[in-house]
């Protein structure tokens, strides 16, 4: 009897330990993102309803930051311009990434992964160095201008290449290209070979196979690529700072200036919330587009 009871206690102990272990791991799984992501976001949200009076933060809830954003003529146009800029970045990046990913995916054998890796390697390099490199190419005394001058195509250095919004768009598109290539490459990779064979077998030309099979089956990946680049471009303030000049003002730079120069953290937080809302909308649209087919 005593032996039997002993076993029961041990089993009970075991069960209790397993349960508490499960609770602990579950708690940890929620705690880590909770503490490091959700909590800061909530603090931010709360702070966006405070305001600054004579350099001092007043902890009273108010909507004045949001009212200021919508009423001050300085902010909404920059916000809209930034949206368009980032859309342009997404379009440019995807337009370049799709053919690259397509070529990568059509390479036979394992070599394709080596090449794909080569396109991802720039992600491991310092962001600042890459921007300087692009500046060195596009600048008035840059690589591009010097080549054009040496070839006699131009007499004086071109100045529209850098320090404007187009330069920001181009630079962001180049920097974010790997983020666009990868999802498209993966989507193309996942199309089974025999589905393409079936299309040709049923009489489709190469173009028909692309339009009716490859493109729709890679559309989700392409939308994801566009969303990646759009969202990443939205949050960037370093690139516009470095290649945007005075005309290349973006929303990210304005937020940065609220924290870095104006020391109006509540207003900066409110602007960040607006940006976050836009990102969530972009993600929601992506979710809708990519959840269309039950495949």
């Amino acid at each position: 009897m005593s032996l039997r009871a002993g076993i029961d206690v041990a089993e009970l102990d075991e069960g209790r330990r397993a349960r508490s272990y499960r609770i602990a791991t579950t708690a940890l799984a929620y705690l880590i993102p909770g503490v490091f992501i959700l909590l800061p976001l909530i603090l931010f949200l709360v702070q966006s309803f405070y305001y600054v009076d004579h350099g001092k933060e007043v902890h009273e809830l108010t909507l004045r930051n949001y009212v200021r954003f919508f009423n001050d003529a300085a902010f909404v146009p920059v916000f809209l311009r930034t949206c368009i800029l980032c859309l342009a970045v997404a379009v440019i990046a995807v337009a370049f990434a799709y053919p690259v990913a397509y070529l990568l995916a059509s390479i036979e054998g394992r070599r394709k992964y080596v090449f794909a890796l080569a396109f991802v390697i720039p992600l491991m390099m310092s962001y600042i160095i890459k921007i300087y490199a692009i500046r060195a190419i596009l600048g008035s005394n840059g690589f591009l201008n010097r080549i054009l001058l040496a070839l006699g195509i131009i007499d004086a250095p071109l100045t529209f290449l850098i320090f404007n919004l187009q330069a920001v768009a181009l630079t962001l598109a180049i920097l974010l290209l790997p983020f666009a290539i990868l999802p498209i490459f993966i989507a193309l990779e996942r199309i089974p070979r025999n589905v393409l064979d079936a299309s040709a077998d049923l009489g489709a030309s190469a173009w028909q196979t692309f339009r009716r099979v490859i493109w729709p089956l890679s559309l989700q990946g392409t939308v994801v690529a566009a969303t990646f680049t759009f969202v990443l471009a939205l949050g960037d303030f370093v690139t516009p700072q470095m290649v945007g000049g005075t005309s290349g003002m973006t929303f990210g730079r304005i937020i940065y200036s609220q924290f870095g120069f104006a020391f109006n953290w509540p207003f900066g937080a409110a602007l960040s919330v607006v940006l976050l809302a836009l990102v969530l909308v972009a993600l929601a649209i992506t979710g809708l587009v990519t959840r269309r087919h039950p495949s």
Partner: peptide
């Protein structure tokens, strides 16, 4: 070329267009 041959194939694993 394959797309001009008057033959059609039933593929292993069917190869249906999922979309």
């Amino acid at each position: 070329p394959i797309n001009q041959r008057p033959f059609n194939t039933v593929f292993q694993d069917y190869a249906l267009f999922p979309h």
